[in-house]
């Protein structure tokens, strides 16, 4: 009984999450205000977290919600609100050239779906031996420091350095006084001081 119920509910979840993800993605593509697009993108990311959980990767699903739908989208919405003029009413969303640009994604999608449909291994249910992506399974593999191991821990360290470099670069880029106008900030400081 439970097995048959699973056989109904599993596909139901898949189609529901897929429908939400694709509809929200179309919302990102067609919306006029980028803030609406950001909310649609959060919908996509949450629906994809559901798909990840359905695929047996609960850890990636949780990280998707925490890091992607949480941290990254908060940063994006924050910047959207700081730059209040982000709404572009005066320019059309699509012009003739960009409609031509839509041909490439259509081609990419049709070719990849064609190739996938031709691959026999993708049809029929997946083999049962895949390990669940839980912390207990992933952590020993990720931090396997033996010489014979896959060496993901080195990549992990490199990612830490990369994130640090990205933060420093972002601070330098967004800092107002660094590039051309040090005198302005100096006079401002003087004005505040007196």
């Amino acid at each position: 009984m439970l097995g048959s119920l699973d056989a109904i509910i599993g596909p139901l979840y898949f189609w529901a999450f897929s429908l939400v993800a694709v509809c929200c993605a179309l919302g990102v593509l067609t919306t006029r205000h980028p803030l609406h697009g950001a909310v649609c993108l959060i919908g996509v990311l949450l629906a994809m977290a559901g798909l990840y959980a359905l695929l047996g990767s609960p850890y990636v699903a949780v990280l998707q919600v925490l890091v992607y739908a949480g941290a990254i989208m908060v940063l994006m919405v924050f910047v959207l609100m700081v730059l209040n003029q982000a709404r572009d009413d005066h320019t059309p969303r699509f012009d003739l050239l960009s409609i031509a640009g839509l041909l490439l994604p259509l081609g990419v999608a049709s070719v990849s779906v064609n190739v996938l449909a031709g691959a026999n291994a993708l049809h029929g249910p997946a083999q049962g031996g895949a390990l669940e992506g839980s912390v207990a399974n992933l952590a020993p593999r990720l931090f396997d420091t033996t010489a014979a191991g896959p060496g993901y821990y080195l990549l992990f360290e490199l990612i830490g350095v990369l994130l640090l470099v990205a933060i420093v670069a972002a601070v330098l880029l967004a800092k107002r006084s660094l590039a051309g106008e040090p005198s302005v900030t100096k006079t401002e400081d003087a004005a505040h001081g007196h």
Binding site: A25, V28, L29, D88, D95, V108, L116, A119
Partner: peptide, 29 residues
Amino acid sequence: IDPIHYQGVAAILFAIGLAAVLSRRNLFV
């Protein structure tokens, strides 16, 4: 649900993202 269904959804989402990058002129989008 076979693996092909997940791959199909991934291909559709990738195409929509590519269309947004190529055709929208708002940098945030």
